[in-house]
């Protein structure tokens, strides 16, 4: 087994585009759930809103890619309002219901054949991200190696821009949550009626949190499709939402850094398992093939099974996540 190679792969993955996309989406969810207590089970819908904003601007409206970024933000804003305005006056579970339904509705709507002129239906949209890569200071096709990190020039550009976006998002969240605005948001998470009795308009705060979280997720969606250079409806399936939740819980909700660290650990683990499984000695490999039918084709499913097992152990032994405090978490039960 080539441990040097595996190390390089894991390190590269730990700061790669996937980590950035999921970190951003989880930062958004952290604002919504970690600080405001909103149960958003449709975060992938906001990612799709951003992704289809840039895609449809180029493909359908024939306007510039850069306007598409604005369109994506507009889509995410409209989605947040559609979801939040009718439900945030109600109990928390109603938002959960409409968000989980909406993200599937969005996916089915954009892949509907009648929309092929606008969204590319199930084919999706390609050839829209060129203006982004035209700005790349690195050579798009060259490989760059520094330390254990190894990136293609185009991915290096995505990674650079991506980490700048993550830094901005973290800075915003940090400043918000240390301000009186963040304090009111946390109070609403703890007890909405208490906050209202003290003069806080909880409805507006919750709507703001849903919107901020949704906008950050839409940027994640944009970055994802720019990196893939394709908008594909089926990449926005509900599993993505639950991966984002996993990452947030792994890091510990309500802490500024947890989405980033959660995302790094999650994806490092996935890449590590994949590489180890692929490089198992032939003897072990054939045993696994005969006993649990592990083959080259289902290794990627199998690694998720192992990750799931890991998460069960995490939930058992460290339910507060990496940054959370167990004492603080226990306060909820009193």
């Amino acid at each position: 087994m080539d441990w040097g190679f595996i190390f390089e792969r894991v390190m590269t993955a730990a700061i790669g585009p996937e980590v950035i996309v999921f970190a951003l989406a989880a930062i958004g969810l952290n604002v919504q759930f970690g600080y405001a207590g909103l149960l958003n089970f449709g975060q992938v819908g906001f990612m799709a809103a951003g992704a289809y904003g840039v895609g449809m601007a180029v493909y359908w409206l024939n306007i510039s890619f850069w306007w598409g970024i604005g369109l994506g933000l507009v889509y995410a804003t409209v989605l947040a309002m559609l979801l939040g305005v009718p439900t945030l006056r109600l109990r928390a579970d109603y938002l959960a219901i409409v968000t989980i339904a909406s993200s599937e509705t969005i996916r089915l709507f954009v892949r509907w054949r009648g929309n092929s002129g606008r969204t590319g239906a199930s084919e999706g949209i390609g050839e829209f991200a060129r203006p982004f890569y035209d700005l790349n200071p690195f050579d798009n096709a060259a490989r760059y190696q520094f330390g254990p990190f190894n990136f293609l020039g185009r991915d290096l550009w995505v990674v650079l821009v991506g980490w700048i976006l993550v830094a901005i998002a973290l800075l915003l969240v940090w400043q918000w949550m240390r301000s009186p605005w963040g304090r009111a948001l946390k109070a609403i998470r703890e007890d909405e009626d208490a906050a209202r009795a003290l003069g806080k308009n909880s409805y507006v705060y919750k709507l703001q949190a849903l919107l901020i979280g949704g906008l950050i997720a839409s940027v994640a969606g944009m970055l994802q499709v720019i990196q893939k250079a394709a908008v594909q409806p089926d990449t926005f399936n509900p599993v993505i939402t639950f991966m984002i939740w996993t990452i947030l819980i792994l890091g510990g909700p309500g802490r500024v850094w947890s989405p980033v660290v959660g995302s790094m650990i999650y994806w490092s683990l996935i890449v590590f398992l994949e590489n180890v499984l692929r490089q198992l000695p032939p003897g072990t490999r054939s045993t696994l093939e005969s006993t649990i039918k592990l083959s080259d084709f289902n290794i990627s499913q199998f690694r998720f099974i192992l990750v799931g097992l890991g998460l069960i152990l995490l939930a058992r032994y460290r339910p507060q996540g990496i940054f959370g405090s167990r004492e603080e978490m226990a306060l909820d039960d009193r």
Binding site: P180, W181, R183, K186, A187, R189, E190
Partner: peptide
């Protein structure tokens, strides 16, 4: 408000806070 400190509980009560 369980997962907020006592002093944050108090500060929350002030009305007309510009930082809100």
């Amino acid at each position: 408000l369980s997962r907020m400190t006592v002093v944050d509980n108090m500060k929350l009560g002030a009305t007309g806070q510009r930082g809100e």
